[in-house]
Design a protein around this nucleic acid. Sequence first.
RNA 1: GGUCAGCUAGCUCAGUUGGUUAGAGCGCGCGGUUCACAUCCGCGAGGUCGAGGGUUCGAGUCCCCCGCUGACCACCA
Length: 882
Amino acid sequence: MEKHFDWSSVEPKWRERWTELGVGHADVTSTKPAYVIALPPPNITGALHMGHASTFSIQDTVCRERRMRGYEVEWAPGTDHAAIATQNVIERQLAEEGLTKEELGRAAFQSRVDAWYEEYGGRILEQMRRMGYTCDWERLRFTLDEQYVHAIRLVFKTLFDEGLVYRGPRIVNWCPYCRSAISDEEIDWQVQTDTLYYLKYPVEGGQSITVATVRPETMLGDTGVAVAPGDSRYASLIGKHVTLPLTWRVVPIIADQAVRPEFGTGALKVTPGHDPTDYEIGARHSLPIVNVIALDGTMDVPSLPQFHGMPVEAARTAVADALRALGVLVKEEPYAHDVGHCDRSGTVLEPLVSEQWWVRMASLAAPGIGAVESGEITFHPARYTDVYLHWMRNIKDWCISRQIWLGHAIPVSTCGNGHRFAWIDPPTRCPDCGDTSLTDDPDVLDTWFSSGLWPFAIFGWPEQTPDLEKFYPTDLLVTGRDIIFLWVARMIMNGIKFTGRNPFTDVLITSTIQATDGSRMSKSKGNTVDPLDLADKYGADAVRAWAAAVSTSVQDMRFDEDRIASYQRFANKLWQVTSGFLVAKVGNGSIADLDVHPPKPETLRPEDRWMLAELAAAVRACDSGFAAYRFHEAVDALYDTTWHSFCDWYVEIIKFRLADAGDHESRRAAVWTAVTTLDVLLRLLHPFMPFVTEECAQQLPNAEPTLQHRSWPDQDPLWSEAATTSAHHEIAEAIELVKRIRALGHGHKVPRGARDRIRITVRDGEGRGINKHVSRLIGGLVPATVVDSHERGVDPAVVVSGRLHAEVVIADTAADASATARQIGLLEANVSRLQAQLANPAFVNGAPARVVDEARRRLAEATAQLDLLRRGRLGGSADAAG
RNA sequence: GGUCAGCUAGCUCAGUUGGUUAGAGCGCGCGGUUCACAUCCGCGAGGUCGAGGGUUCGAGUCCCCCGCUGACCACCA
């Protein structure tokens, strides 16, 4: 037998078995109720990272549990084409070869992309199989699938025909690196310290006005100066004109409510072409738009050759220098502010005016707000409800066009007569006039436009396929909080708009795993942790159980490798107690043929009932954990019950019974209880740790080919009955007593392993002997011999637990009574606190009866224990003295 | 500027209607190995629950205020 659980040999076996048995595949004709999760599609060329490990592990855990509960589970996997990310990779490759995509041409570029997908596509799917995720691989989808493309075009055409998609010039977030517009949700704001420049402009009539700006280079495109409407400092200047240095353009001074009088000088230079606020001010005051920055992020000012073609950063300094030389630059100070970066390339965004496609969101958002307000869709944790609603209620039109090559082409053409129309199948002629000289729109769609259709497009929508019928709407969506707006909100809006149904009922937002220092994990920082490395090191089960346990409690969780290691040891513990103890020792190599019919209840010993009651509590904790998406509660309860209640106490207790071959009935009850407990625990743990639980369950009686074919444990009436008997309490007290007797050994030089040197008597509160079984049980758990009574003349240490107390004599010498004294001290403190509390009428009258009763009960118990300890001590001393 | 979250043992974190002596894992100290497991077992030390007020018979838990950390939102000049 292997010394330890060897996941590296076990995992491949079970992955194959699950595939052979079709565990992940859902039968669309099944009469079982469907339970469906649409996998958030990872980038096809991506690699499994911590975020995936945490969200995917939870999804698989839920899927496995639902299968055991009798649902037809569909966990639909797929991948996203990730247009911008992939295009950037290919362009970097080309750059290394000294090429640009324009030199290569569109067709050749596309084949490079295809080759890249071919080489790296689906790697992440292999990694997911490696982790044991039971997706329905037969329903694998890709956002570039023909059917999926059809769905996208239909959605676009519908929105276009309804006037919800429009094209127009507006100021957009332009990424000079990607050479594309991006949406507001794709901006990564970063704090940056720049210089705030104060520019003093001459005003007609000999006065002057000073504006503050961090971007002096944009003054080349200024077409106005704005002040706050009520600002008395500038009231007299409103309507006058300023002559701008360098361009010598004459621009008006206007009053606009967007100006914050307290900032800088209270006067704002207005650059409608390169600032979103200024764009709006300009629109309100009909100021002209002057573009001075080109799409590549360089200055576009042919009339000022000294700046033309300069990168913006360089132009900033150059323009500032020129203004300084002219005496216009009157002050400079450091200024920290947020600067928008492209979340794909990290490049500083350049707001500029350009012609883009937009979706009108307001009417789409309204029902999406209602679905969440009404509780039809629930966020977990609940606080994300407000995050979602706030964004939805303030939603802005969505820029969906991208000026990149890769992705879904915007399905719009324009004919020679200027008719613009959207299409589903590529057209040959204009539907309005029949003209055949068609020009296709050059842009592609935002990737999120396509992923927003995921939950229904993957099942064949718009066709009313059997899959769509059976599996849509889905039930649960599990994802990180970073894509609530980008993806979750848009799926809700699209789902309602195009299917008339909410796409899911529950949204689970997982914790974010941070680096050990609390910073964000990122490839560029080099502080990422690879879940597959961890799976190599600790086994997939350990990574999965850890991921599930940490992903549903806090908002952010620092990565703690030791905690993963603890789940690896837990897997080993499970395997040891199953294979090494139950099978090897109890069953002499096999327990497959064991009689699993419950024994007569009266043959169950108190400890058996205690174990069953503990098991019942674990089932309850596990069920409520699943129901509330609080998986850490389920994992913690199962870990504790398995390791401590079962392995540390129950198994240790029954070892003595198992060794007693004479008592056949007792042995049978113990074996049955142990096997039953383990079987239930393995089933409950299976969703979290599928590999080790399968490996263990195979060795138990009545094994199925996979635990996925077993049912989820129900509460057995026998267990509840066990919990209501006094057995549970009795054993709990005995366990506590054992701990206290053991504690005597610490710090008191009690020689361990010297059973014959330590003698104990165990009695109840009235000084009577206790149940023989329990007394023997205690004797088996401590290194001591149980005797009926001590010889006269010795001074026992006394320990108390509940109604039980033990007199302990070590090596026939006077025991160090400090343990007894310590207990007395604690109890005295306890008693006086309880007495004070109960003497307070405000407490007795004000607190609920159950609380007061409980306080009285505790006081009575503590008082009784105190009496026992004092009597034991005094009595012993008196005898010793005599 | 606004909103949300976090601050509990050396570390990472539990602690859902306020009610035992505030818990776990890891780490640390002491002891233990023929008898499932040293990836183990037993015992122990370690906390004024971020600071300060308040409500209450009673506060880690509720309220106010402050501090620090992080996230998000915002028209971020």
